[in-house]
């Protein structure tokens, strides 16, 4: 069985304490949340942090709540909590649909929203959802908090705006009354990373799409998003032709790579097919179907 390299460990008692520990232990210290990305990487010795700063006791980072017209998901909210959240189910079923397909129930008991976002795997499902919903993340450092749009959060695969000495604390999403949302994913097997996924929301008002968001993962979409497709669709009727054209524009903006999950042409096709399927369901939901 593969085992991690030696590491130090400190358990944070508050976010401020965690920030202080990060400062104290230097740039090779890493915070650990659920550990379901980091510990396997440590075991495979792809990651060798010098110190782990454990955030699991930080109640202030847990929970899912509504604040004004935003939904706030604490960075330490577990995937299982997101899956079961009545708040998210009410406003954005896309979360439930995506979470049901993330890893497996036992992993979801441990894995966290913040951990997944910060791991920034190019196939991460929640990144697509977050990007579709045009959410923001809150990042704290000793000098204070800053808010970053999710569409600016990722620099590239496994790279985010969270700098040394910083911790992601929250993810926030605007509530959009009347929005329908949906998630479509193809995976080789239950629990696998997606071959491709599309998450969308659509608000249909007076017979036209007044707002929409399209998020894509695993298909080389910049910032997990498809802004040209959104632009195309906004202001148009949610007809099959318009949805299909939007899906095509979304797929055209993707640049997937071939790997064992599938060849690039297939992934590009899926980007289109899954975007279309998600748009159909989301726009139907928005129209009360």
């Amino acid at each position: 069985m593969q085992t991690p390299a030696p590491v130090d460990y400190a358990r944070a008692t508050s976010v401020d304490h965690a920030l202080q520990l990060l400062d104290q232990h230097g740039e090779d210290a890493r915070v650990i949340a659920g550990g379901h990305s980091l510990i396997p990487m440590m075991r495979l010795r792809i990651a060798s942090p010098t110190t782990l700063i454990d955030l699991n006791d930080l109640d202030e980072l847990k929970g899912i709540r509504v604040e004004g017209n935003e939904i706030v998901i604490g960075a330490m909210a577990r995937h299982a909590e997101v899956l079961d959240s009545p708040i998210l189910a009410e406003h954005y079923p896309v979360f439930r649909e995506a979470e049901k397909l993330i890893a497996d129930p036992v992993v979801r008991n441990r894995g966290t929203v913040g951990g997944s976002m910060c791991q920034a795997d190019p196939s991460e499902d929640l990144s697509a959802v977050g990007s579709a919903l045009r959410g923001t993340v809150v990042i704290r450092s000793k000098s204070g908090s800053r808010t970053v749009p999710i569409r600016e959060f990722h620099f590239g695969p496994y790279m985010t705006q969270v700098a040394d000495g910083e911790i992601l604390t929250e993810v926030r999403f605007p509530i959009r009354p009347g929005a329908g949302s949906a998630y479509e994913k193809v995976e080789r097997r239950v629990g696998d990373w997606p071959v491709a996924s599309a998450g969308v929301f659509v608000v249909v008002k007076d017979g036209v799409v007044s707002d929409c968001g399209i998020g894509l993962t695993a298909v080389g979409a910049e910032h997990f998003s498809a802004p040209e497709a959104e632009e195309f669709l906004i202001g148009k009727a949610p007809t099959e032709d318009n949805l299909a054209e939007a899906a095509k524009i979304a797929a055209d903006s993707c640049n997937p790579i071939s790997d064992q999950r599938g060849p690039a042409d297939y992934k590009k096709h899926l980007a289109q097919e899954l975007t279309l399927r998600a748009l159909r369901r989301a726009s139907a939901a928005s129209q009360g179907a």
């Binding site: 193809v186 080789r188 071959v195 999950r261 060849p263 297939y266």
Partner: peptide, 8 residues
């Protein structure tokens, strides 16, 4: 016969 192989 993965999804990719079936589609191809």
């Amino acid at each position: 016969l993965t999804p990719a192989n079936v589609w191809r």
